[in-house]
Design a protein around this nucleic acid. Structure first.
Length: 703
DNA sequence: TACGGGAATATTTTT
DNA sequence: TATTCCCGTA
């Protein structure tokens, strides 16, 4: 950590600069119109199987002497070994689904360590929390004591760490808090009404506005540009959106708060503009490894580029066929553009699938063969035999749930533990009926991707106390708290918050609010002051807050107040592990699953329900994909957008490549779609043209 | 200005 | 289908 200690105080003149120019910047070069055509450089670096053979031999001979037993024992195939022992230069690894990507990456880390690179100078970044956890965990298993020092996590988690140490150079205060999605929406909503951009005149909803802002930041484009590119139907509101974005940015900054995108954007800005920081970070990390690179946004790939600008020892791993975060600004072309950042890039491919049986892989390849804009790649497996996947038409949603329950129990009886089976679906709500049915049969399950405990009202309320204590400028927290009080409504709350923002001692303002709510506001203030008291243990403070909140909870939720109080218990357990209030809150916003993980400490005997997005990188013996009904998957709104449809196809590909042994695809043959007022009755369009010998289909009997 | 009732609406996916 | 937003009333 020594590299962090010095020179964080130098002031770089960048105070209230909004992240993006309000005026049009120089136009980035437009996308090539025929993205089907692959860039020339890609061909230049393609290793045909023959090339690979030569490459791998030289790699083996060169490095065998220095490879530790760790790597020799790892049973890497030649392609993987080539990646593991690749020279320290820009490297792009195209790794197909189930090709041992993580396995390869962690052995690459082991290789670097055995080559003498200090573990704390290796940076391992991924895009999702789950992938990060998995990778760090497996690295620890492999490297034991060394791994503790390896720097790794999600882009956002790393961003936070860097900003804490170097953010001062941007004028960022040493202490700032992180906004979650809800906070961001609340703030946008507030500013909208302040600026009287009423939704009446067709002004977009806050979710959409935020999506737009996020897109702009993640693609490094101006608001106006983003509107015309990605949100053309909002064109009439561009001037207001620009004003709103600036207000949003300035308010965040004034309140010492950063949203998810800021965690990346500010790092980007720091690396761009503050040479000392760039040099320090760039030389500190001697090797940068990025997983799931296909899900990287422009903003993230720029950070990678800047981090590697000194040593060029950057390895990125990904699979363009599994790029499923386009809605967040990721694009398959980001993967191909790696060359722009590092012209001397070498390309490696991992196409040997170790996960699935041949019939499953054939189906996966078939789904992908009509895909557009993808790097040509065909997975193969040595796992011969295996059962064909099955497509099963059910006559209703309930029938689908019943069928699944039956099959799951059947597999369970055949000796497959519950946690080695998973049900996957396009969107979270698709599992609602199934969840009820499973519960009726007393089948234990965990769900990834649904409404988390952290998103429930009572949870957010309690958190608001902690957040207000941690950062008295946090207007969302105060808004929430003040509205819990009787006789305080939006107007009064807003007035109080506005006064607090200006005051040198914000909390003192609360003691001087005249009017009917005077005493309750004072009481609230006392609670906050106590919560700030670092001499009391965090757990005790939390217990104190909950005690104060209890009567309010009983008032607002008289029916299930007891259940909700029970809900809050795990929070106390979690608090015990945190060193400070600030650390606790950070952990909670960046890692909300920590709450559920304590709740499901042993998901060992639980069936897994998951959105396909959350399932990426994971595998099970048996996988059921439900709701493969055109209109649900792919959703109706993607029907007329080619790009969106392509992403849906890749999403299906991700789902199909999850199982090791058995794959079932099910759908109800008929379902009324409320939003579009039409009846959905056809099979998912990507599966419909597939012949029976690849995907045998069955019809469920009427009960 | 707080609050409750009724109507409109649009409905992913993650950090 | 469930939320979210708007408006009228106390």
């Amino acid at each position: 950590m020594s590299a962090y200690d010095t020179n964080t105080t130098s002031v770089f003149p960048l105070p209230l600069d909004p992240p993006l120019p309000a005026e049009e910047p120089s136009e980035p070069s437009p996308l090539p119109l025929s993205p089907r055509k692959l860039p020339d450089w890609l061909h230049a670096h393609i290793h045909t199987p023959n090339d690979l053979t030569q490459e791998r031999h030289s790699a083996v001979e060169l490095n065998l002497a220095t490879i530790s037993p760790l790597i020799q024992n790892a049973q890497l195939n030649p392609e993987q070994l080539a990646v593991v022992t690749a020279p320290a230069e820009p490297t792009l690894v195209l790794a197909g689904a189930g090709s041992g990507k993580t396995h390869t990456l962690i052995h690459r880390v082991a290789h670097l360590v055995t080559q003498g690179l200090p573990p704390d100078q290796i940076l391992l970044i991924t895009f999702t929390r789950k992938a990060a956890e998995e990778m760090i965990h497996r690295t620890q298993l492999l490297l034991q004591q060394h791994s503790l020092k390896i720097q790794g996590g999600t882009f956002h988690a790393m961003g936070l760490i860097w900003l804490k140490h170097y953010g001062g150079a941007l004028g960022l205060p040493p202490k700032f808090s992180i906004m979650d999605e809800d906070d961001a929406q609340g703030l946008v909503h507030l500013l909208m009404s302040k600026l009287s951009f009423s939704r009446r005149k067709g002004f977009p909803k806050k979710q959409h506005i935020l999506a737009l802002f996020s897109r702009a930041v993640n693609t490094l484009r101006s608001i106006a540009d983003t509107v015309s590119r990605d949100f053309p139907w909002l064109d009439a509101h561009t001037p207001q959106l620009v004003v709103l974005f600036r207000a949003y940015t300035e308010t965040k900054w004034r309140q010492h708060r950063v949203d998810y995108d800021d965690l990346l954007y500010l790092v980007y800005k720091l690396l761009c503009l503050h040479e000392p920081s760039r040099r320090r970070l760039g030389t500190h990390y001697q090797a940068v490894l990025v997983d799931e690179y296909q899900d990287t946004t422009k903003l993230q790939s720029e950070i990678v580029r800047l981090l590697g600008s000194h040593h060029h020892n950057v390895m990125v791993v990904g699979d363009d066929a599994q790029s499923i975060y386009g809605f967040r600004g990721a694009h398959t072309k980001n993967m191909l553009e790696f060359q722009d950042a590092f012209p001397s890039v070498r390309l490696y491919k991992l196409e040997h699938n170790y996960r699935s049986t041949a019939p499953i892989l054939t189906l996966a390849n078939t789904v992908l063969q009509d895909a557009k804009d993808l790097y040509p790649k065909r997975l193969f497996t040595a796992k011969a035999g295996g059962q064909s996947p099955e497509l099963i038409a059910c006559y209703s949603e309930q029938a689908q749930s019943d069928l699944l329950t039956e099959r799951i129990l059947q597999c369970h009886d055949e000796g497959i533990p519950l946690h080695r089976m998973a049900v996957l679906f396009r969107s979270s709500a698709h599992s609602n009926n199934l969840e009820l049915t499973l519960a009726r049969h007393k089948l234990a399950f965990v769900k990834y991707g649904g409404l988390q405990l952290t998103e429930t009202a009572h949870f957010k309320d309690v958190l608001a106390y902690l957040r207000a204590a941690d950062n008295p400028l946090d207007s969302n927290a105060w808004h929430r708290l003040l509205l819990l009080l009787d006789r305080v409504g939006p107007k009064l709350a807003e007035r109080i918050i506005a006064t607090m923002q200006e005051a040198p001692h914000p909390l003192d303002v609360l003691d001087q609010v005249p009017g009917k709510a005077e005493s309750t506001i004072r009481l609230l203030n006392n609670v906050i002051r106590t919560t700030q008291d670092e001499s009391i243990s965090l757990t005790d403070r939390l217990t104190f807050v909950i005690k104060h909140y209890e009567p309010i909870l009983k008032r607002d939720y008289p029916e299930d107040a007891k259940v909700r109080i029970e809900d809050l218990k795990p929070l106390c357990d979690l608090a015990r592990q945190s060193t400070s209030l600030a650390a606790f809150l950070e952990d909670l916003t960046l890692n909300p699953s920590a709450t559920s993980s304590s709740k499901h400490a042993h998901p060992d005997h639980h069936l897994v329900l998951s959105t396909i997005h959350s399932a990426k990188g994971l595998e099970w013996d048996v996988v059921f994909v439900i709701w493969v009904l055109d209109g649900q998957f792919p959703p109706v709104r993607s029907w007329h957008e080619e790009q969106a449809l392509e992403e849906e196809r890749r999403l299906l590909y991700v789902a199909i490549t999850r199982p090791r042994e058995q794959l079932f695809l099910t759908y109800p043959t008929e379902h009324y779609h409320n939003a579009s007022k039409q009846n959905l009755d056809s099979l998912c369009r990507f599966l419909a043209p597939i012949p029976d010998d690849i995907l045998p289909s069955y019809e469920m009997d009427q009960a």
